[in-house]
């Protein structure tokens, strides 16, 4: 397998791409399909690496902040594609959905095209909003279970 060298991207662009890949990793397969459908027509995509499922060993840190140890593995699906117009895209997602990984890799490749980036970001907006909303809901529901201590009686006369 040969994968072209990435040109060293400037930091902001790389950070944005990491954000994109994080969103695509968390999106549901159906959401990824919807995003792709909204971006049509699409250039054809060839596999740089056939989509595949494997494992990543997840590590923890002793005491939460110390030396690492191997906690256990997780399933991961990954894919790498190259679009007919040249850009290559990658995806790594927890789980075993190789088809969704390939679709995510196509979106990653489209995003790297300056002329398409804004469109990709626009159709991803609802996905980002859904993910942010789900996290906010967890925080709000958890916050309602916060213990408010109060003093019943003080010891002095």
């Amino acid at each position: 397998m040969s994968i072209p060298e990435q040109s060293s991207p400037d930091n902001a662009l790389q950070r944005d791409r990491q954000g994109l890949m994080a969103t695509l990793a968390r999106a549901e397969a159906g959401e990824i399909d919807t995003v792709l459908a909204l971006l049509a027509p699409l250039p054809s995509a060839a596999d740089l690496r056939p989509p595949e499922v494997g494992l990543v060993m997840l590590r923890g840190r002793t005491g939460g902040d110390g030396a690492p140890f191997n906690l256990g593995e997780a399933t991961v699906a990954r894919a790498a594609v190259r679009l007919a117009d040249g850009a290559s895209g990658f995806a790594y997602r927890l789980g075993r959905d190789a088809r969704a990984a390939r679709a995510a890799a196509i979106i990653d490749a489209l995003w790297q095209d300056d002329t398409r980036r804004a469109a990709v970001e626009a159709v991803l907006k609802p996905v980002r909003a859904r993910l942010a909303g789900a996290a906010a809901q967890v925080r709000a529901e958890t916050a309602a279970t916060k213990v408010d201590f109060f003093t019943l009686v003080r010891g002095e006369d």
Binding site: E52, V53, G54, L55, V56, M57, L58, R59, G60, R61, G64, D65, P68, N70, L71, E73, A74, T75, V76, R78, Y92, A135, V138, R139, T142, T145
Partner: peptide, 23 residues
């Protein structure tokens, strides 16, 4: 089942200090 799959790599150590806390 896990013995049937290749390993892609090792994760960065999980940061439990940066957790979406549920409890």
């Amino acid at each position: 089942f896990r013995t049937t799959l290749p390993r892609f790599g090792n994760s960065r150590p999980l940061d439990t200090g940066d957790m979406l806390v549920r409890r």
